[in-house]
Simulated scan of single mutants.
Amino acid sequence: MNARDEATTTPLHVQSGSEFHRVLHEAAITWNLNPKVSDRSWVAELDIASDIRLADYFCRQEGLEPTGERSTPPVPTVISHSDPTAVVRDLAADRVDLGATGYKTTGAISESLAIEDQSVSHPVATAGSAFVVSPPIIDSGVTSLRAEELRDIYAGKITNWKEVGGPDREIRVIAGPDANPPRWLMDTFFNGVPEAGVDERRGREATRVNRIESRNDAVGEVPVGFAVYDTPVLDISVDGTRFSVNETGYPATVDLACYSWGEPNPQERAFVSYLQSPAGQRYVDRYRDFLPLNWQADS
């Protein structure tokens, strides 16, 4: 039997090498507090009738003994931060229990380290970017663009909306600060091509969205969680298949996951179940960089 499978009060160690670290940190604070589910209206969300404590509830589902005590979860959890490569090394060496590597998959990192990838993915959120456009552009019928068209707009090769089926109007590309779009998006979606088509930059996401919505000719990129609330977001087509921003396959987004090395043990399953539940997803939804699991436009 693996030592990690034995009943223990040794803290569950979750190591993050990603932007998701702050979500894990806040979720773990509540887990370790082990409040009653009624304290924050989780009773209805978790569909339970009893007033059990939060960590107790998820641990009991995995056959672990509840403590019934505040600030004493059955499985105390520690969150640490490191770079994605170190996360995979520590997972493979059994130095940590769960790991998050952000935009980089454990498979790609394992290959670079010549380590046999034994990771198991447990999705917890969606991250990335969405493309917001001025409402008159949507009204004109431009509700979707091909990925190649968006790349050409940002590269300055397409400069008028009529070239993509819209009105005869110059395209205004509104981007964030110099480090925006994020490096992950530049390297993957934009293939590292310089943003020669950017017309202006706005630092704050809310300012960027307001600027785009106030015009009749603009497009811009914002974090995916920031874009989905009452904002005109473009669908993107890839190889003839159209994806909305909350669908798997939207090419400017990526699934974020916590990984176990091999199938998770009961302690790991309990914490992952918490992260994936409405109780844990509250912390995902708090940050506009991310979309919660099962996000719906009418939620």
Score class of each variant (00 low, 15 high):
34 N>I: 02
49 A>P: 07
19 E>R: 15
50 S>I: 10
34 N>R: 07
43 V>I: 13
40 R>C: 12
45 E>M: 14
49 A>D: 15
32 N>G: 06
35 P>N: 07
37 V>I: 09
30 T>N: 08
23 V>C: 06
43 V>M: 13
39 D>K: 15
33 L>I: 13
27 A>V: 08
21 H>E: 05
9 T>H: 07
44 A>F: 10
45 E>F: 13
33 L>V: 13
29 I>T: 14
35 P>D: 01
47 D>T: 11
30 T>D: 11
35 P>F: 07
48 I>M: 11
38 S>I: 08
52 I>K: 09
35 P>C: 04
39 D>G: 10
52 I>M: 13
54 L>G: 03
43 V>T: 15
45 E>K: 15
55 A>T: 05
34 N>Q: 05
44 A>Q: 10
15 Q>G: 02
12 L>F: 04
31 W>I: 06
11 P>T: 07
34 N>W: 01
50 S>K: 11
55 A>V: 05
23 V>E: 05
49 A>Y: 11
13 H>F: 06
45 E>D: 15
54 L>R: 01
38 S>D: 08
44 A>I: 12
41 S>Y: 12
17 G>N: 00
43 V>Q: 15
36 K>C: 14
47 D>L: 12
45 E>P: 13
51 D>A: 04
29 I>W: 09
28 A>G: 01
21 H>A: 08
39 D>W: 14
12 L>Q: 05
44 A>C: 08
21 H>S: 05
39 D>T: 15
11 P>G: 06
17 G>L: 00
24 L>M: 07
36 K>D: 15
48 I>F: 11
19 E>W: 10
12 L>I: 07
43 V>G: 11
34 N>M: 04
23 V>W: 00
55 A>R: 05
27 A>P: 02
35 P>Y: 03
9 T>N: 03
34 N>T: 00
19 E>G: 12
48 I>A: 11
25 H>P: 03
22 R>T: 14
48 I>Y: 13
12 L>W: 00
50 S>V: 09
16 S>G: 08
14 V>A: 00
27 A>I: 03
14 V>C: 00
42 W>I: 02
11 P>E: 01
52 I>L: 13
42 W>H: 04
26 E>M: 09
36 K>F: 14
14 V>P: 00
43 V>Y: 06
11 P>C: 03
25 H>Y: 09
34 N>H: 08
53 R>Q: 06
38 S>P: 06
23 V>G: 03
40 R>G: 11
28 A>R: 02
53 R>Y: 05
20 F>R: 01
35 P>T: 01
20 F>S: 02
10 T>I: 08
22 R>Y: 10
14 V>N: 00
44 A>G: 07
49 A>W: 11
42 W>D: 11
33 L>Q: 14
29 I>M: 12
54 L>N: 03
32 N>K: 09
14 V>K: 00
47 D>Y: 05
29 I>P: 08
17 G>A: 02
50 S>A: 15
47 D>Q: 15
52 I>G: 10
52 I>H: 10
19 E>D: 15
48 I>N: 11
10 T>S: 10
33 L>P: 05
10 T>W: 05
32 N>Q: 07
24 L>G: 02
11 P>D: 01
39 D>I: 13
55 A>Q: 06
26 E>P: 04
51 D>Q: 04
52 I>C: 12
25 H>T: 10
50 S>G: 11
38 S>V: 08
46 L>C: 08
50 S>E: 15
33 L>H: 12
24 L>R: 00
34 N>P: 06
14 V>L: 03
40 R>A: 14
